[in-house]
């Protein structure tokens, strides 16, 4: 599982970072999503999936 972020679309809601804080963060200065772990372990699949769906701006996607 790989996480992709199209950061150009990010509107800084923080939903991803609050849903899956081990995988996503919000930049302290620029307010843009930071992917902390690009290939999260499979046991985090459900949480990461929820974080991806929680983004209202379609920034995030998952690739196998």
């Amino acid at each position: 599982m790989r996480v992709r972020a199209d950061t150009a679309l990010c509107v800084s809601t923080g939903s991803c970072a609050l849903t899956a804080p081990e995988v996503f963060d919000l930049g302290e200065d620029d307010g843009v999503v930071v992917v902390l772990v690009e290939s999260p372990p499979d046991e985090q699949r459900e949480t990461v999936g929820r974080a991806v769906r929680a983004c209202p701006a379609g920034v995030l996607s998952l690739a196998p």
């Binding site: 800084s12 809601t13 923080g14 970072a17 609050l18 963060d25 919000l26 302290e28 307010g31 843009v32």
Partner: peptide
């Protein structure tokens, strides 16, 4: 134009650390 504002406020109201 809109994102510029959201991203300026985001670290104050949306980041896990700040919350």
């Amino acid at each position: 134009e809109y994102q510029r504002f959201r991203r300026h406020m985001g670290p104050e109201i949306s980041s896990p650390r700040r919350l």
